[in-house]
Design a protein around this nucleic acid. Structure first.
Length: 759
DNA sequence: CCCGGAACTTAGCATAATCCAT
DNA sequence: ATGGATTATGCTAAGTTCCGGG
């Protein structure tokens, strides 16, 4: 019933043209388009779509474009970027005095928070001008390599055409990678199968084929289930370990990790993020990734480049091994890197999210987004005006910025043939946008991570007209909508509004701005739980804006069912109590008829099904309790409970069942305590009402959140200071909103902001 | 310019850890 | 205390942007 969240592009109806040639074709179109392209600002929509092979473009216009384009970059060289940030820094320093004062107050009050490992260095209270140099000293202990491959026991094998295969360890390892995924969707994906099988055969060939003369040719004759089952068994055994043993293992792991967890940056102890080298395995590309299933090869020390200061001791390696390279580059914030074999790019070992350098980057990111406040009006005015610009490039730019600003689209860079076909703004194609006059647009495309973006929206009239122009024949499916645009052109354009302004800043800006606006709407009243719910609702609007999705969990439907059953049960209980009141004193009905109205809401059938559910649950409970109790007794060598003991419990349930049945007929409630009163029952009903309220809200929240992921926007888009201010102003403990690791990541925000701060 | 490499930021999913009702 | 449900974290893929060299 749930629509699949991630979309695997429909079976290659891909045109014979490769994506790159599509692009080229689009470029040709442009020239033609320019010929047709005199854009009258008042062109009516009908005219636009009609416009056949229009007139030649005014050459003047062409010239102006070129001149404009050239003159733009002269304005400022790239490296400048710092200027904008320096301004930000000054702003900070004025705020600093305030901040440190409030900090002192805090300390006087003796707020003893969590322990800090880094000695409490507060970079946000320090001044630092040039940030191209990231550190002066950097020492660390390198990385953890995955353990070497452990061959399977000799009775666990791959079967080919029904026969056991003796694989060389290296090939067996690869087979094992596949076997381990048997339960997952990956192994159902033909691309995954094919890529895996190719690489598996290659490894097998490299190590001289199978050891018992079986030639593996057909993937469909391979049976990995024995290996899979062995892994499952291992998993099970690991789960069965006593908590003692588990603890032991954990301690050993922690001891091994200890030296790698921290490094020394400018003399301070800071945490390292991903100090583990990624283990070999099968590449799990998302969506319709052409390389999914390929073997991700093992990384050895000689593949790894370390980055540390010149005087830092070089982390030792086992005899005979050496690091690929030792570097001393203090303009970057990585500690180690290696080249990965799937797309031939680099992987980095970097500082943890709570490190000072990452904190500073975050801070700068949000300050830059805040700066956009001062320019956004001009930018909006500008792009609105330029929607009617006579130059095609300008129109494309303004429409693109409009989409990025209004719908929070990503920039959308060009992608190569061997990646999943996903798009962002600049790479949108003809088929991703459907136009419904007068001004409704349907966006339907796969974005980052192959997450579907589907929106039916109304857009500015002129935007609509322009989109129609961008789709005008001879353009057709497969062609680029913005055929003259790419992120670098767009970003260059944005630069001249504000240094450092790029497409992604709009997402940050609009996310945080939306959050601020939503938080402003929340009244400062009610319980902490209620406020939290409203905070989450605000968070959710941001997540929806950014299209942050998650797959519904396997047991979502079940859990919703359970929750709504629970509510129904509570309501039934309430009704029951009300009946009881009437039983005690019939005159109550006349006194407050409204109160008893809901007695009629519950049909006999509903009531019966509630009864049934309760009874079934009780019976199940008896069985479970029986089984568990006996397990325990067995373990302790005690006498076991007999079937008759179980029967006794079940009989009790049966009795309840009969009571319910009777109650259903007679509507007569058997009251538990004899001396109850109307007042007491009223109290109980009130309590029930509250519980029902709470449960109903939680249920709604659960449903609304089932496909929306709040975390991504909380971590990356919403200025953390907004949350801190919210907590302070509304008396909500920050722990309710930021987990421990987020509090550490956003320490700069938690400690530096007072109630008056605004995004 | 254009291209691709390099560096950094953002993303969802699997699983570990924790919570919470029983 | 248990174990099923929920939440937090770890992992690594997939974006954007910067940058330097032809």
């Amino acid at each position: 019933m749930t629509t699949e969240k991630r979309q695997y592009s429909s079976d290659e109806e891909d045109t014979p043209l490769s994506r790159t040639s599509k692009r080229r074709r689009a470029a040709q179109l442009d020239e033609e388009d320019d010929d047709t392209g005199e854009f009258d600002s008042d062109t009516a929509l009908s005219q636009v779509s009609e416009t056949p092979n229009g007139r030649t473009p005014e050459l003047e216009e062409e010239k102006t474009t070129r001149i404009e384009v050239k003159s733009e970059p002269t304005k400022k060289p790239r490296k400048k970027q710092a200027t904008g940030l320096n301004k930000v820094k000054k702003e900070t320093s004025t705020r600093k005095t305030k901040t440190s004062k409030s900090k002192i107050k805090k300390e006087e009050e003796g707020v003893g928070e969590e322990e800090e490992e880094d000695g409490g260095y507060k970079w946000w209270e320090a001044e630092k001008e040039d940030d191209s140099v990231k550190w002066t000293t950097l020492k660390h202990n390198g990385v953890i390599f995955p353990p070497p491959y452990e061959p399977l026991p000799s009775h666990v094998k791959l079967y080919y055409d029904g026969k056991p295969v003796d694989l060389p360890a290296k090939a067996e390892e690869v087979a094992g990678f596949y076997a381990a995924l048997l339960g997952s969707d990956h192994t159902k994906n033909p691309v995954f199968q094919k890529n895996f099988f190719n690489d598996f055969l290659e490894v097998l060939r490299e190590c001289g084929g199978t050891q018992n003369n079986i030639e593996i040719k057909d993937f469909n004759k391979c049976d990995f289930t024995k290996i899979f089952e062995y892994f499952e068994l291992q998993k099970e055994q690991r789960k069965q370990l006593s908590s003692q043993e588990k603890k032991q293992l954990r301690l050993e792991r922690e001891k091994l990790e200890e030296p790698y967890k921290f490094c020394e940056l400018d003399g301070r102890k800071e945490q390292v993020g991903n100090f583990r080298i990624e283990p070999p395995g099968l590449f799990r590309g998302r969506g319709a990734h052409p390389k999914t299933g390929k073997l991700k090869r093992r990384v050895y020390p000689e593949d790894v480049v370390l980055n540390l200061d010149k005087d830092a001791p070089i982390p030792p390696l086992p005899e005979g091994q050496k690091w690929g390279e030792i570097r001393h580059d203090n303009t970057v914030q990585w500690l180690a890197m290696w080249r990965e074999n799937i797309s031939n790019s680099f992987k980095y070992v970097r500082f943890a999210a709570n490190s000072s350098l990452n904190g500073q980057s975050d801070y700068k990111k949000f300050e830059k987004a805040r700066q956009l406040k001062d320019h956004i009006d001009a930018i909006r005015k500008d792009y609105t005006k330029n929607l009617k610009n006579k130059v095609m490039l300008e129109r494309q730019k303004s429409v693109a910025i409009y989409l990025i600003d209004v719908f929070a689209l990503r920039a959308g860079g060009e992608k190569s043939e061997d990646e999943a076909d996903t798009v962002g703004c600049c790479s949108l194609r003809y088929e991703h946008v459907t136009l419904n006059p007068p001004n409704t647009v349907i966006f339907d495309f796969l974005g980052k991570d192959s997450i579907r973006y589907y929106q039916e929206v109304e857009v500015d009239k002129q935007v609509f007209k322009n989109l129609a122009i961008f789709k005008r024949p001879p353009k057709q499916p497969g062609d680029q909508l913005f055929d003259r645009l790419d992120p670098s052109i767009l970003n260059k354009h944005l630069q001249h509004y504000m240094p450092g302004l790029t497409a992604k800043v709009f997402r940050t800006y609009n996310a945080s701005k939306t959050m601020q606006d939503q938080l402003d709407l929340i009244p400062n009243e009610g319980t902490v739980a209620e406020k939290l719910l409203k905070y989450n609702a605000a968070n959710r609007t941001v997540a929806i804006l950014c299209n942050h999705q998650r797959s519904v969990t396997k047991n979502h439907a079940q859990s919703v069912q359970k929750a709504s059953d629970k509510i129904k049960e509570l309501e039934w209980q309430k009704i029951r109590l009300k009946r009881a009141i009437l039983q005690l004193d019939e005159s109550e009905l006349k006194k407050r008829p409204k109160y008893f109205e809901e007695l009629d809401d519950l049909t006999k059938e509903d009531e019966a099904s509630i009864h049934k559910r309760i009874i079934e649950r009780e019976i199940e409970k008896c069985h479970k309790k029986f089984a568990r109790e006996n397990d325990k007794r067995k373990f302790e060598g005690q006498e076991l409970l007999t079937e008759s003991d179980l029967k006794e419990w079940l009989d009790k349930v049966e009795e309840t069942r009969r009571n319910y049945e009777e109650e259903l007929e007679t509507r007569e409630i058997k009251l538990k305590s004899a001396n109850t009163t109307v007042e007491k029952l009223d109290k109980q009903i009130e309590k029930l009402d509250q519980r029902i309220q709470v449960s109903a809200i939680q249920l709604r929240d659960k449903e609304e959140n089932s496909q929306v992921s709040l975390g991504t926007s909380k971590i990356n888009y919403i200025d953390p200071r907004l949350s801190v201010v919210f907590c302070k102003k509304y008396g909500v403990p920050i722990e309710k909103i930021f987990t421990k690791s987020l509090r550490e990541k956003f320490k700069w925000a938690v400690e530096s902001v007072d109630e008056t701060w605004r995004f």
